[in-house]
Computed example of a mutant assay.
Amino acid sequence: MRKVLIAGAAGAMGQKAVALVNTMDGYDLTAVLAPHLKTDERARYHLANSVKIYHQLDQVEDGIADIWIDFTVPTAVYKNVKFALQHGFRPIVGTTGLTDEQETELVQLSKQQQLGGLIAPNFGMSAVLLMKFAQEAASYFPDVEIIEMHHADKKDAPSGTALSTAKLIDQVRQSHETNPAETESLAGVRGGDYHGIKIHSVRLPGYIAHEQVLFGGAGEALTIRQDSFDRQSFMSGVKVALEKVATLSHLVIGLENIL
């Protein structure tokens, strides 16, 4: 029986993860980290009486779990994952907001600790395929922009998926000049810039998670789009991560790398 701790268990994604673990054979939800979850709210959050509730990171006890699932917030994720690795937990991380430098440090720490884990900007299969297809298309269409659309409560911008898409495109994209005469009459109107790839973030009620990658060429255009209409769609990827994390020798970045 593999023991699981869920950080951010009271949030929308955390609750989906709780439901998933509760239905998986061979896995036992033993603890949650949720700063504002009260012990008398167990029934509301579908937590058995045996589940330990921690309100602070430094309260988490060694050995309480084997796997650490993190669906928290960008300001907490780095400290959480570092703590998990230092205390023998295998992390599965869906929280975005880690910098490249932080990811590099955490991967190195995982190798030192000889602990496998996964950091995934998106657990949805459609998003993983979008990134794969976008990277392939970028070899033929170097002129590209990304539009990501998320719910109004999302705390970070751009989304981790959009930034990961840009990084994958940048690996294969031919270098070329942008329009040197371009000006902005409204600051920021052209979006963020990752090595010349423009990224635009939309935050509106009613959306969940959506991304478009727009390619332009001489006389033609290509648009690749994915839509996540329900957070339940991300759980197929989390399930894969739970099943494979014990086989990983270090922290892996991207769900596509363990499929």
Rank of each mutant, 00 (worst) to 15 (best):
Q113M: 06
Q226N: 11
K79Y: 14
A31L: 03
I208Q: 10
W68H: 04
A152T: 12
A138W: 08
I53L: 01
P74G: 03
A17L: 13
P91N: 05
L118Y: 02
S236W: 12
I199H: 04
H36I: 06
S201H: 03
D143M: 06
L222S: 01
G8Q: 02
D170F: 12
F71K: 04
A84W: 03
V77R: 13
T178G: 15
D230V: 02
V32A: 03
L204M: 14
M235E: 01
R44I: 08
H200F: 09
L259I: 13
T95Q: 02
R190A: 13
V213S: 00
K52M: 09
I253T: 11
S50F: 02
H36S: 12
S139Q: 15
K244A: 02
K79I: 13
A12H: 14
R225Y: 11
A17N: 07
A76Q: 12
I64A: 08
K52L: 04
N122D: 09
P158L: 01
Q135Y: 04
T165V: 13
L33R: 05
F215C: 03
I67C: 04
E211G: 05
I253K: 15
V144D: 02
K155G: 09
F123N: 07
V144W: 00
S201R: 02
Q108W: 07
Y207C: 05
F89C: 04
S185E: 14
E220F: 13
L5F: 01
Q174K: 15
D25A: 13
I253Y: 13
